[in-house]
């Protein structure tokens, strides 16, 4: 099938998708901008670490410095003129954007005509994409709660006193990698998938594929217990139950094992990453037990998302643990 540029243009030029197209450029730019300043500071740190005399006398910033200058300047005008300038620039940007692009307005709301695909606003598409991998109570309720709480505990579990108030990469490798994986890899990337890849019926369309509302995916999703052929038939005579009953119980019990294995393996992995270098070990020793448990729990839960994505998209496995009440 030929590459459908028109389809790409249609998605990218939908007025409400413009912010996410902008984010595609803005997010990498600021990532580069932050890391560039971080690397510049790292070079300075390397010099100071190697030269005790310089560490005492040198100005410890990459910014220009003259001993004659005052360390602090008047807010008015030096800071506030920048603020006013930025406010004017933002206003101009908004004006131009509003004059050139109209806010979308579809037909009047009609519960009888379903939009296909029916998409949430772009900033929630990461959560909607998560619906593919988890049941709604996890994707829509538990995960958002975990994200919010997880963000809020960051300052209380990050025991690394370095890098407070300046850009650095080397002094905070682990926390920066964790945040980048979470923010860029799991949040922004999921939004991009939800915007550009997911078409009618929330089916996967590669860029350049035409969004075909008639397409039917014959899903062969299986649960993990089906892969292993668990049906519990041998349990039935022992407990004097029907085969169906036995199968339900067998599956519910079987599902606990891969979950426990995941938690153990993930915990070992997280622990290995957290104590990989001499510096990490030092930080690790500063942490209280509560801090450690909290951090490991959130990291393991965070890891569960890419694992579930992998299982679903590559191995077409739907549930790991099937119980009569809920499935994971």
């Amino acid at each position: 099938m030929p590459f459908d540029w028109r389809q790409i243009w249609e998605i990218a030029s939908a007025p409400d998708n413009v912010p996410i197209v902008a984010l595609l450029f803005v997010a990498p730019f600021f990532m580069w901008y932050a890391l560039r300043q971080g690397i510049a500071n790292d070079k300075l740190i390397a010099i100071l670490e190697g030269d005790a005399q310089a560490a005492k006398t040198k100005y410890r910033k990459t910014q220009e410095w003259d001993p004659k200058w005052e360390r602090e300047v008047h807010t008015w005008p030096y800071l506030m003129r920048m603020e006013f300038l930025v406010a004017i620039l933002v206003t101009v940007l908004l004006m131009v954007w509003s004059l050139t692009l109209n806010a979308p307005l579809e037909e009047p709301a009609n519960p009888n005509v379903t939009m296909n695909p029916a998409k949430a606003p772009w900033y929630f598409l990461g959560l909607q994409e998560m619906l593919v991998y988890f049941d709604p109570w996890i994707a829509g309720v538990v995960m958002p709660t975990l994200i919010i709480v997880g963000l809020m505990v960051i300052p209380y579990i990050d025991s690394n006193p370095l890098g407070n108030g300046y850009y650095t990469y080397k002094q905070r490798r682990f926390s920066i990698w964790t945040f980048l994986v979470g923010f860029i890899g799991l949040w922004v990337l999921m939004i991009v998938i939800g915007t550009f890849i997911r078409g009618p019926g929330w089916m996967w369309f590669w860029p350049g594929q035409t969004w075909d509302a008639e397409r039917v995916d014959y899903a062969v999703n299986r649960n993990l217990d089906q892969v292993f052929g668990i049906d519990g038939s041998w349990l039935a005579p022992i407990f004097h139950t029907t085969k169906d009953q036995a199968a339900i119980w067998a599956r519910a019990i079987f599902g606990i094992f891969p979950l426990v294995i995941f938690f153990i393996v993930a915990a070992i992995l997280v622990h290995w990453v957290c104590t990989r270098t001499e510096f990490s070990k030092k930080i690790y020793k500063r942490m209280s037990l509560l801090q450690l448990v909290t951090m490991y729990t959130f990291l393991i839960l965070m890891l569960s998302l890419p694992i579930k994505i992998l299982l679903r998209l590559v191995f077409t496995i739907k549930y790991i643990w099937v119980t009569p009440w809920f499935s994971i």
């Binding site: 300052p155 006193p161 920066i176």
Partner: peptide, 8 residues
């Protein structure tokens, strides 16, 4: 986050 400004 990148400037570690959430620290103490």
């Amino acid at each position: 986050f990148m400037t570690g400004s959430y620290k103490r």
